[in-house]
Write a protein that binds this DNA or RNA. Structure first.
Length: 370
DNA sequence: GACCCGTGGAG
DNA sequence: TCTCCAAGGGT
């Protein structure tokens, strides 16, 4: 029997303390299997994609909706991209939805409808990066894969009092996690690290007094909030534009689809101008109207809406008009029937435009979709 | 590595 | 135009 070094004992003890805590304090989440049970890889994958840069609270309703609409991966693969985008609308980062759909089809066609258990195979699937591949391998298949997300980065940066700023510190963090990973419960270990980061080792209010890893933590004694070190953020530019909501007598509105790639790719939107950088005073009302999809309609300004994207803020002037009787949808446009409005693949910014227009017409705001 | 890509909630 | 951020991935 080989003697264990002091650091090996410390690492083993750290993992044990974490798992003991996890068995008592683990969060009960819809996609999480009961203790001792193996979760459905499809459910794990679906939840992991949705949880990318997205809060648990925001994901829950979408997760339930997707699982109800498409209980298995072949159901999702058989759906149209349009249906998937409609169901994803409002959750953000829409390339995830496009990749989700493509990934489901790949799993069906290339893997017989069964998710591959190996991290290296998972990594090749669209929308599955280093984190997600490790998470699925560990959680769904109990493979000893290191799982490093934002929570784990914060927990480890504090444990080690890492002076290296992110993202440069990722290598070091990954190596540490790989080193302490217990091979008997890799799935629970991954989820325990993330639960700890989410509920105890929180960004702003770390609960060091109740932390099971406090005795291992190098940041304890100082201010844990000093870690991880992060580079300063860039200023967010301001853009401005106009949106046009044209309404037919039967209540249908004119819409179009955005290009497959790029911002809000594949999503439905109202016609509008470009969104250009500039100050509010550089955008007189008249300039917006020039871009209207129907020159003969009597456009009036309904109001303005504000929306914040990841890398710019947007203010949109919302113009509304009744469609002339002889007007037909222009190239690239289509009429969205009043009954189909609620289910349309509108991103949140377009829901704001819609709400602004409905209010101007004194129409009731649509009920929030289930 | 840098930049693009949404949204809503907490503090 | 408060700031910060949440189970990242693609290019």
């Amino acid at each position: 029997m080989t003697r264990k070094s002091k650091s090996e004992i410390g690492k083993s003890s750290l993992s044990k303390s974490l798992l003991v805590w996890y068995d008592r304090a683990r969060r009960d989440l819809p996609w999480r299997a009961a203790p001792g049970e193996r979760p459905d890889p499809y459910a794990v994958w679906l939840s992991e994609i949705m949880l990318q840069q997205t809060t648990v609270a925001a994901v829950k309703a979408y997760y339930e909706k997707f699982l109800a609409l498409w209980p298995r991966v072949d159901d999702l693969a058989a759906a149209s991209l349009e249906q998937v985008l409609q169901a994803w609308a409002g959750l953000g980062y829409y390339s995830r939805a496009r990749n989700l759909h493509a990934c489901a089809q790949r799993v069906v066609v290339e893997h017989g409808g069964v998710f591959p258990p190996r991290e290296s195979e998972l990594r090749r699937l669209p929308g599955v990066g280093p984190y997600t591949a490790g998470a699925i391998a560990a959680i769904a298949f109990d493979q000893p894969a290191p799982v490093v997300d934002g929570n784990v980065e914060r927990v480890v940066a504090r444990l080690l009092a890492l002076e290296t700023p992110l993202p440069a510190a990722k290598k070091e963090i990954f190596a540490f996690v790989a080193d302490i990973l217990p091979h008997d419960r890799p799935g629970d270990f991954a989820q325990a690290m993330m639960d700890l980061g989410a509920t105890v080792c929180a960004p702003r209010a770390p609960g060091c007094l109740i932390c099971p890893l406090a005795r291992f933590c190098a940041a304890r004694g100082g201010d844990p909030r000093d870690f991880p070190k992060k580079p300063p953020k860039k200023a967010r530019p301001f853009r401005r534009g106009a949106a046009f909501v044209l309404r037919r007598a039967d209540g249908a509105v004119l819409a179009r689809r955005r290009p497959e790639r790029g911002l809000l790719g594949g999503m439905t939107e109202f016609f509008g101008s470009d969104w250009r950088e500039g100050r509010a005073e550089d955008w007189p009302e008249k300039r917006g109207r020039e871009r209207a999809p129907c020159a003969t309609a009597n456009w009036r300004l309904a109001g303005e809406i504000d929306h914040v994207f990841t890398h710019f803020a947007l203010r949109l002037a919302v113009f509304v008009a009744a469609a002339p009787a002889d007007f037909s949808a222009p190239e690239g446009g289509f009429w969205l029937a009043a009954d189909d409005l609620r289910a349309a693949a509108f991103p949140s910014v377009m829901r704001k435009v819609e709400a602004c227009a409905l209010k101007a017409w004194d129409l009731p705001a649509p009920a929030k979709p289930a």
